[in-house]
Structure formats: structure tokens, C-alpha cells
Amino acid sequence: MSQVSLSREEAIIGQLKARFPEAIEETKIDRARRVTIHFEKDHVQEIAMFMRDELGFDHVKGVAGVDLPTQKKIEVLYFAGSYSNAEVQDFIVILKAKLPRDNPIIASVVSVWESAHFHERETFEMFGVKFEGHPDLRKLLTLDNWEGPPPMLKDIKFPEMGQR
């Protein structure tokens, strides 16, 4: 794998870094066609806009949350992909932002990527992440009067169901 040229991946990272020198915290090329970018959470909409308009990443494949209880953080992941730009069609760019665990708030990207609508709702429900500016942030999957904590957090256990 190491022989494969990673110039396209580096080009994307280079463009993002040139545009947002302070917002991009860390970048990583996982392998060919996979790029991970850690960014500062306040810049999510600008970065999304740049990705869509300049780089051609016109949709998100999903929005995921990852709970990191040891660091007291919740990470939000955006899996951006492209249909229109043939150059980067095979890429998945993973944008990651870390939010504080006790008050996870981030701006919604629905105004940029409409495809994030249901994914953000799901992440809100499963991790309690509030997406500010989301047009319709309601519970989606769990019981309609689910009152418990967001179920996907690591320290939430359901002992009555026999979980360890």
C-alpha cells in the first residue's frame, strides 16, 4: 500500500490548510482515499461550505458521534463524499470535531448539506449533541416518550436488560 501515490489526498489537505490555517488542528491520511481532518468546532459551517463549493463534496454519507469518556469529550464525525466532482468521487473525508461532554453544542450543517438532516437528528438522540440551527431537531428512533439519557453514551448501561 505504501507505494500508492497519495498526492490527491495531500492536495485536499493542503487546500483546507491553506484556507483555514487556524481551524484545522490535525490531519491524517488513513490510507488511499480516506482523509481524516480534526477541526475546531466553531468553524464547522465555513469548512462545510468550502468543502461543498470549492472541493465538490456535495453530500454527507453520515454524521456519527463517538463518546470519549476518558477525555470528557464527545466527538462528532462528518463523512463527506462527492457525486459531482469526478476527481474525488472515491473519497471519504472524515471531519472530526471535539465537543465538551457535559454541554455538546455544535452548529448544524443542514443549511449546507441537506443530506445531514436525519443523521443529525439521530446523533442528537443517541448522544445528546445539540445541533444549533437544525430546522427540526426531534427524536427519531427511540420510543416516543423516551426519557432516559442518550442511549449510546458509554457509561449508560441497561442492567435490567442483562447488560454488563
Binding site: D58, H59, K61, Y83, S84, E114, S115
Partner: peptide
């Protein structure tokens, strides 16, 4: 493209992906 649909639904709309 905007809604990010996939699979046959996407290809029926003319996106070769």
C-alpha cells in the same frame, strides 16, 4: 446529489456512482 441519496435511487436520476 443534494439530498445524498444512494444506490438505485441515485442512478435512476442519472448520477453514475
Amino acid at each position: 446529489k443534494k439530498l445524498g441519496v444512494v444506490g438505485p435511487v441515485l442512478r435512476a436520476s442519472g448520477v453514475k456512482y
